[in-house]
Structures are given as structure tokens and as C-alpha cells.
Design a protein around this nucleic acid. Sequence first.
DNA 1: ATAGGGTTAG
Length: 626
Amino acid sequence: MFAYKPKPQPEHKPKHIPKPLLCLPQHLSSLDQIKQTHARIIVLGLTRHGKLLAHLLASLALSHSPPPLPYSLAVFRSFDFPSVFATNNLIRCFTRSDSPRQSLALYSSLLLRKFAAKPNNHTFTFVLQACAKALAGSEGAQVHAHVVKLGFGGDVFIRNALISFYYGCFGLECSRRVFDEYVRVRDLVTWNTMLACFVRDGQIGAAEKMFDEMPERDVVSWSTMLTGYVQNGCLEEALECFWGVRETGLRPNEAILVSVLSASAQLGLLEHGKLVHSLVDSMNFPITASLGTSLIDMYAKCGCIEQSKLLFDNMPRKDIWAWNVMISGLAMHGLAKEALKLFEKFIDKGFSPANVTFVGVLNACSRAGLVREGRHYFKLMTENYGIQAEMEHYGCMVDLLSRAGFVDEAVELIENMKISPDPVLWATLLGACKIHGHIELGEKIGNKLIQLDPNHGGHYVQLSSVYAKARKWEEVIRVRRLMSERNTNKAIGWSLIEAQGKVHKFVAGDKDHERVTEIYKMLELIGTLVAKTGYSPNISSVLHDIGEEEKETMIREHSERLAIAFGLLVTGVGDCIRVVKNLRVCVDCHEVTKIISKVFEREIIVRDGSRFHHFKEGKCSCRDFW
DNA sequence: ATAGGGTTAG
């Protein structure tokens, strides 16, 4: 079989090409602009001008949103003899589409010389990208063979594309082999590509090592490392990395700013987040939709919901993420009515909600105990919008229903789930059994959970709380003993507070802080003033097998008490104390914090493991429902 | 005339 090779015909060359038609591909970024230019080309009778059409294809390949394939193909078909440049650009259009495999067909037609062109060095970088996206491993390996056969084996661009391709289709070891193969054919991008492979593989230690060994680092190296830290949950390292970027004097890019804001948000470090915000302003960095959304998210998660609202209201072009983040932010602050109102506005604006939108909406309902609304939106999601309920949606619903007392309905929901339920759902239900005193069901669930994960200390604690609620003390002791015999993992509670440019982290009974004496004196003062109000501690949440007095000491030294005591030392009347806690607050700490807010005249904002509590003048924004 | 690396957020 031999390939069909048409005879090239002389290109029709018009004498004069109007200037606006010759703008660079990246200047035509929207499809509308491209189509307008195309129309002018047709009207002016320049359709046989290959260079213009090739330009048009290049614009399509680079356009802002992925170009529609029928249109790209139509442009390509209007060539008599598409050049390799035009073909390369069509390959890129295919790669950006939903069917990147079509790039491969086009490439093989290049190999068969169906057109006058033959593949060049550029072609391979594009085709390898397509293989990576289409997960076409064996095809990509064949392309690799062609690369070697046709003498492109030493092209650094192609080698870099090969590293990405092998990672995507064959894993880290294979991409590593390509990286190691030609030690001399490496540039900064080669190192960055390999670095990204380690990050994507979750091997953050190996990534760090590579980052340190790199001969040089640019802003992409830093942003790869920083986003890697955030994605792998190494939040403190991410902050350090950000200050590393600052030291180099490099101008951060958007990914760096968004990621460091995400780390600040997750840690709840308002002062840090504010510092990043002020840097963004002082750099005159453009506030894009994603950067704006990150700021809204950061302020919400750091307790400044008012600031989030302000930024949201003044945001010129809000995309769906801005709305999602704002709705979730309101939800975690317990502002359910506002969150639902915003959701309705979102719908009125013609946006279509995503599954994360409903996580925010359902969360709002569950935080505020809006059972009727929760049922409505859950139904709306699945029936009107055809969104499959995911684990998080079920989590919200189970929490909402069971905490509001509809335990049977929650059980029914779990039993009828289309996906297999996460043990977290049962654990949620167990918590509700404790609140509502459903001893038998709680016992059943608790034992099941312990059987499922015998090392999880939390399940034992919950089950013993269920027994304690029923005053079955022997059972409490039995479960406690089982727990200590099995040496289960205990989630260590901590609380942190920012002051004087530093993060102060406390665990229960902590004695490590430099102002430990003052802090414990403050705790005593709190104890005295609280006792004066007539409050006596609720010890049901502390179920250690020890005497009453010791129990009281234990709660009095819970990590958030220490953080708040320290907060009282470094603030004045009328100031705000912000505490971040990893676990949920206990009933007693919640009561005492209310009293502190009144007696010491402070606003106290606590972010616990599931939501925000705003304590002011003796009341909490959660209205004791959490 | 075209290239390659990082695309976050509940």
C-alpha cells in the first residue's frame, strides 16, 4: 500500500491583505472574534489564502474556551493542502476537546502523508499531550518510537512532553526513567515537569528533595511546590514556602496566591490571610474571579463573614465558584436564611447549581436545623437538577434529620442510599442517638462501628456517652476499659490563636507556653467569675473514669479555655478574640465561653471542627444548636 | 507563523 500524495498547487496570493486580518492568534481569544475574522476572510474572497486560514486555526487552538470541533474541522477542510503548521494546530484543537483521541487519527494521517506535510518537532509535543489526555498509553509509546526513529530523541521540548505523558499513562517510575535517560538534555522545564510528577503522585518528600536539588528555580517551580503542599495537606509548609517565594523577590503568580490563601483559610489564620491580601493590593495584582473567590473563602473560614460579603458584593464578574463559596461561608457561620436567599438569587440569575452548591445549601439547613427546607432542597437537587447525591449530601441530611430528632428518617435515608454509606454517616447518627437518648440503636451502631474500625477511639467515646446518658455506668466503664486495652488512636484536641504575628497553639492541660503562669491565673479568675454567675459545670461530656473534682479540672483546662485565657491577656475590653479548634466544642466550654464574652466584654469567635460560634454578650450565634 | 511546566475554591 502506498500513501496518496497530492500535487501541491500554487497558492492563490491576493495583492493586499487588510491589516486587521493579520493580528496574532493570541489577540483573537474569543470564538466570536475568530468567527468575525473568518467571515471577513470569506467576504473578501481570501479563503484560498492558506496562511490566513492557518492563522485562524492557530487562534482556535489558543482560544479562551475549547473550540467546537465541527467548526475547527470545517476550517481545516477548506484548505487545499494543509501545511504541517495548520495540521499541528488542528491536533491542538482536538486535544483540547472532549475527544483527544481524534488527534491520534490526524497524526497517523500525517505519517501516511495523506497531506503534503510531514510531522515536525512541534507535532510530537502536541501528539504526546493528546496521548496523555486520552490515556492512550500504547499509542504514546509508539509515538515515542517514531520520535527516536525520526531523530527527535534529543529535542528537549519533546523529552519534557514524554515525561508528562509517561507519568499520566504509566506512572512515576516510567517518567523518572525518561528524566534520567538524557542527563544533558534538561532545562528548567524538565525539572519542573518531574517535580510536578512527584507532587501529583503525593510524594511530597521526594518533591522537596528535587526542589532543593534543582539547579535553578523559577516561579513555576515555586508554585508547583506550594500547590503540592496545599494539596497534600502540608499547610504550615505551604505558608513557609510562600515566604520563601517572597525572599527570592519573584513576583508570585495567581496559583501561588490562591494556594497560600487556601492554606491560610484552612488553618484559620486571619492575620496571615490579611497579610497576603495586603500584598496582593500592594502589588496591584489583578483580582481575577479565582483570586477574588479565594479571598472570600479565606475571610469566611477565618471568621470575617462580613468581609466576605463585602468582597462578594463588590465583585464585578462572579462565576459559579464565587457563589458556591459565599453560600458555604454563610452556612458555616450559621446564617442559614441568608445562604438560602443567596441560593435563590443564584438560581434567578440563571446559574445552574453544581453538586458543591447543594453541599453549601444543605449544610446551611443542617446547621440551623431547618428540616423542612433541607428535605425540600435535597429533593430539588435530585429531582429537578438531576444531581446524584454524594456522600457529603447524605452527610448533611443525616446530620440534619437525626439531630433534629428524625432518627428513623435518617436511618431510612442511609439504608436506601445508592452508594455504600461511609462509616462517618453512622458516626453522625450515633451522635444523635446520644443527644436524643436512643440507647438501643446507639448501642447497635456503636458496636458495629467499633467492629468496623477497632482502632478509632472516637467510636468508643461516643458509645460510652450513649451509655452515660442512660446512666449505665457499668457499661461506660466496660467500653472505656476496652478502649484503653486496645490502645486506640485518640484524636488530640488543639486550639490556636494568632497574636503579635505568631500562632499560639494549645492542647488540653498545656504547660508549654511562655506565659503559662499568667494563663493559669487567668483560668482561675475565669473560674471565680463564672461561679459567681451561678453556673456549675456540665461534666457529662467528660467521661473519664475518675473523680468528680478531677473531671472539672479536665474541662477547665480544655485547649480552647487556654487559648481564650491567653486571648484575654493580649486583648482589651471590646476587642475580638478568635480561636480555631480542630474538634467540636464541648457543652461546658460552650456555656463558659458565653459567660466570658459577657463578663470580660469581648466578642469571641470560635471555629470548631464543624462550624463557627460567635459569642457576644452572653449569647452564641448557634443558639446552642450545633 | 506553533512548542513545554503550575490551574486552586465546599
